[in-house]
């Protein structure tokens, strides 16, 4: 699945990284705990989180996560958007809860990392 499919499934808004929407995503991690995200070793990973701060993007940068979805209608600040843009990370905002977002993506074939 590519990122533009995810945008459609979640009826979400792309905040930055429009040029990377054809990137492939294979696995999903949903967490508000960045310590947990940093333990994951997986490629082509999507992060679903309700945590909207600079460290969310820093964590994605360190973990080579190329797409972050902010769920529960969380909004990205201009600083967050700047950092995501600088690192080529696609940032998406969506109104669904974490549970519903996971359910919709799982139903369409995206797998959990374990």
């Amino acid at each position: 699945m590519i990122i533009s499919d995810i945008v459609e499934i979640l009826k979400a808004d792309v905040i930055c990284g429009h040029e990377y929407l054809n990137r492939e995503v294979k696995n999903v991690v949903a967490s508000d705990l960045m310590s947990d995200v940093l333990t994951i070793n997986s490629d082509q990973l999507l992060l679903l989180t309700g945590l909207s701060n600079i460290q969310t993007i820093r964590t994605a940068e360190m973990s080579d996560i190329q797409c972050v979805v902010l769920v529960r209608n969380k909004k990205a600040s201009p600083e967050i958007i700047d950092l995501a843009e600088e690192n080529g990370i696609v940032l998406i905002e969506c109104e669904h809860s974490t549970y519903k977002s996971c359910g919709l993506l799982f139903q369409e074939g995206l797998k959990s990392i374990y």
Binding site: L33, M34, S35, D36, V37, N53, Q55, T59
Partner: peptide, 11 residues
Amino acid sequence: MGFGAGMGLVN
């Protein structure tokens, strides 16, 4: 900030 779960040093 998403940290402080007692996992850092172990990771």
